[in-house]
Amino acid sequence: MERFSLDAAHLLAGGMVLVSFMMLYQNRILGLLNVFAAHAVVLALSVAWQAYIQHAPHLYVTAALALILKAALIPLALHRMVLRLGVHRTIETVGGIGLTMLMGMMLVALSMVVMLPAAADADPIAREDLALALSVILLGLLMMVTRQNAISQIIGFMSLENGLILAATGAKGMPLVVEISVAFSVLVAFIVIGVFLFRIRERFDTIDTQVLDDFRGGRE
């Protein structure tokens, strides 16, 4: 049973890494939103499983938060936003998908190298979960770096935050307050960014950050 619960935890965390890769692969914005919702669902499952094996009921709250906010509300809101902005077309990636995926692989390898020897004497659940969580965080960052579209950058940011929650729940004894505050800060950030997006669009007629950069260059 011990063995099984460990394996299930790994499987769920590995599933998050996998979904992160799917996000890197997905180059249509509505598809990306669906994959992000899946990411949040896997996160909720993973957190709930941690709650079950650690006997920590407060983690169920975290799981429920993830499920409601990130798997349902935010994707739905973003979906509406995308439709209203009229940007549901193919998005571009810098450097091509194959190369991005390769870089992602290297990042996963890197996080393994960093985490596994560093936490060699730690609890095996925490150790390997931490390595996977770090991979999710790095993949989220990679996503933010490689995408030009502001909405995919937001999604990259939120998947990064999912990785943080995964890391936090894997390590035993994280207080609920911290989690809730993290979750809410993300929500706030999301709202702020959402408002800004519309303002930017109104002003410049695009949300492509490359184009926005050009505007800045032109002003000088």
Partner: peptide, 12 residues
């Protein structure tokens, strides 16, 4: 038989 991350990846 166990659940393994790697086997999940392999199946997909």
């Amino acid at each position: 038989a166990t659940l393994r991350v790697s086997l999940g990846l392999a199946l997909i």
